[in-house]
Nucleic acid binder design. Structure first.
Lengths: 194, 194
DNA sequence: GTCTATAGGCAGATAGAC
DNA sequence: GTCTATCTGCCTATAGAC
């Protein structure tokens, strides 16, 4: 009765998601195929269809899992006890961690390919940005209230600028293969709030 | 002897570039095919190969033309006689104009697909960003000198942040189909310099 | 849960006629 | 400069054996 195995090695579905996630984040959704995943896992293309009916369903599952993990990371920051200023730094560091794996944000790269994605994936991408901006807006407001951040604009506007600014910093840093480029842009981005 | 016809209707090569440019900017380089272009122009796929040997050569030609046009737009801003502050606004407006056509910056979307592009295209994408940052750096330095802009960081750092911030603002605004979203983010991005 | 086998389609590309 | 015809290869996906 191993309904929930705490430390079992990853099941096949999870390993498929892991490989597919890396492929999307490095090559884009239109830049990889079932064959790429199958070859890497040592199974056949047909075997993949047992776990994910089609590429659209796989893509949807990728965004759902990615968003859940991101939400968990945000919850961890919320629970950290840091002040708002430090939490903002921690938020920026989430993006830096993604980039350090030479990856683009999953939803950032999907935003680039947005007009070619199946509808369910589109909706999930939008939700990711909405959730991030909502969380960041609340953080900025708390920072403005406790004096650790100085807001010169409505918090929602700053949140929008920060999310898109961080996505852009990742986007441009990757061709240069230079994580420092991201960190520099990100720091200047939030400098006006500190 | 029509070596240079001033107002001739576009030649086939130009029309191919026009269609391909729009397809890349809306769907990505891996999101369209020769068949899409051929269908739209009413010629066959084989006909395209006469003008551009392969998709790689077409992609390279796209970046070259796009970069030339961008450089011309920058030269026009230089020649405008506006102060540095107004020139910065004009620069932001170049991006807004691209987005108003429901398109992403050509090199921004190629940056997302960077790891799947043929080498010559990669080099041309990097050059585009280098050129933009160099132009913007010079502008910011002039603005700092004449007092119309207030630099709190080295001009090159601010230029990097602005270019990547504008690319990100385009990237995220497009799924929302909301040009206002771009304008808001862009204004907040340069607010600290004004 | 993974396999073999295969379908049906589209990709980028080429040869050679007109 | 554009066509027809064709190639090879990869794509996503399915049927059915094991």
């Amino acid at each position: 009765m191993a309904a929930t195995r705490p430390k079992a090695e990853a099941g096949t579905a999870t390993r498929i998601l892991d490989v597919a996630e890396r492929l999307v984040q490095t090559r884009g959704f239109n830049g990889f195929s079932y064959a790429d995943i199958a070859a890497e896992l040592g199974i056949t293309k047909a075997g993949l269809h047992y776990h994910f009916a089609g590429k659209a369903e796989l893509g949807e599952a990728l965004i759902v899992r990615y968003s859940e993990r991101f939400a968990e990371a945000l919850a961890a920051i919320d629970a950290s006890g840091l002040d708002a200023r430090a939490k903002l730094d921690a938020y920026v560091d989430l993006y830096a961690q993604v980039l350090s794996g030479k990856r683009m944000c999953l939803c950032g790269i999907l935003a680039a390919e947005y007009q070619t994605l199946p509808r369910p994936m589109c909706d999930a991408v939008i939700r990711f940005f909405d959730d991030n901006e909502a969380w960041l807006t609340a953080l900025l407001e708390r920072g403005g209230a406790d004096g650790t951040l100085s807001l010169s604009e409505p918090a929602a506007d700053s949140a929008q600028m920060i999310v898109s600014g961080l996505e852009g910093a990742m986007l441009v840093a990757r061709p240069y293969s230079d994580p420092e480029r991201f960190k520099s842009s990100a720091q200047h981005l939030i400098a006006s709030l500190t």
